[in-house]
Design a protein around this nucleic acid. Structure first.
Lengths: 237, 237
DNA sequence: TTCACAGGTCAACGGTGTTGTCATAAGGTG
DNA sequence: CACCTTATGACAACACCGTTGACCTGTGAA
């Protein structure tokens, strides 16, 4: 049973399921994404996916070794979609800012896939293309190779990490999410100034700021620092 | 059955389990942390925790409403431990750098708890203390309130997000983790220069850089940008 | 000494990913 | 066209998961 999976290229027979659906890697990935979109991240399980496809759950194991493999395929598809809508202008800082925001938004739209893909290297086609593109932006902006790689790494990981962080929040059941944001008003905003002077002094800002994602701010800080570094490098040569 | 849980303060009767253990919130949290440390993040389940404690799994529901509640308690304990070993010196940038690295290291040591706590507000004692402390560092450094809150938010979320990201990687089964890092050498380092010029040009740096966490680099970028902002603000007044 | 009930146990429910086994129709071959 | 191989589907079972309703019992206050 070790290799139930036949590589996509070698697939020949298109035998329909009991309910008449003809399975394929693409159809499975697309259906999984639809499932996540329509019913939330927690709606994705092998069994539910099987039901949605009109196939026995175990059939999916002919296409993916485990759920993990499936998630990686989904992740790569997401990378592709994100990159496809991005139009670089030649201004590296604006382009990376735009790309970062798009990656973050893409993660928010697909929480479960975002969490998984954030710490995995898919090694698939779309991912490779993304690496090539981002490195190109940085090198053409004038970053020397080691610096380009360092900034690339920090940029991508930060986008993925915040994407996973923020999307994990949205994946909570609604009741829990409401409870979360209530904590800031119910607990933090009511702490007395004598025991918690700094919280008390900034409570107003805290309540307002904590309900938003801090990713845009973090992204701007990162890009700002990178720009300063680039200026420094160019001044020195 | 809606309130099986008696608040910690009101607990009176210390009835031992069949195996003679006297349960308590502290003992449960401590045992859960030990379980994670010894057998990895995936070893933590209500049933296993029950077994490790010498108690029926359902007993835990007398102390925590659901596993989530338990994870939040664990997370708060971790915050407490991290803060306890931290010795601020008065240099805000060095202190925050040190704290960030400690938070990140703490997350790596407890992957499962890190992932969960990263996107939750516990509202418990240790968390509140941490917020107060960090805000204090920033305000005393001279950041005006709205700016202090913004930097606080970005700083904390970045530490949590990278902590979750990197610890999720370490939580992979060893085989999968090896496979991951192999991808960079096996796939990326071998792409031809004519189709992927930027990857090919930086392959050497990529292979070296991608196996490390990018958190320290990202943290330095963030703190650097914040420092520049502070200088700008102080110059203007 | 009594006795309410906190705090333990037990059994069950409905869910999950995964796999060993079997059946069958697709599609290449003669 | 008929045959045979085998890819690909279906089924049933396994071991686990979190959670809950019902029950039992020893604790500790009155």
């Amino acid at each position: 049973m070790s290799d139930r999976v036949v590589p996509a290229a070698a697939r020949r027979r298109r035998r329909p399921t009991k309910e008449g659906v003809v399975l394929s890697e693409e159809l499975i990935v697309a259906t999984a994404l639809r499932l996540i979109e329509e019913h939330g991240a927690e709606a994705l399980s092998v069994r539910r996916l099987g039901r949605a496809l009109g196939a026995d759950p175990s059939s999916l194991y002919r296409y993916f070794r485990h759920t993990d493999d499936l998630m990686l395929a989904i992740a790569d598809e997401l990378i592709g979609r994100t990159l496809r809508t991005w139009r670089p202008t030649g201004d590296w800082r604006a382009d990376l800012r735009d790309l970062g925001l798009r990656m973050h938004a893409g993660a928010l739209a697909h929480p479960r896939a975002a969490v998984l893909s954030s710490y995995r290297v898919t090694g698939r086609a779309h991912e490779i293309q993304a690496v090539e593109t981002i490195l190109g932006v940085l090198r053409e902006a004038g970053f020397p190779d080691p610096e380009a790689v360092r900034v690339y790494h920090a940029f991508v990981d930060q986008a993925l990490a915040f994407g996973a962080l923020d999307s994990a929040g949205t994946a909570l059941p609604k009741a829990a999410r409401d409870a979360e944001s209530a904590v800031w008003e119910a607990t933090y905003a009511r702490l007395p100034a004598d025991t918690h002077p700094h919280i008390a002094a900034t409570a107003r800002h805290l309540v307002a700021d904590m309900r938003r994602s801090s990713y845009p701010a973090a992204l701007d800080l990162l890009l700002g620092a990178a720009a300063a570094r680039l200026a420094e490098i160019q001044r020195r040569t």
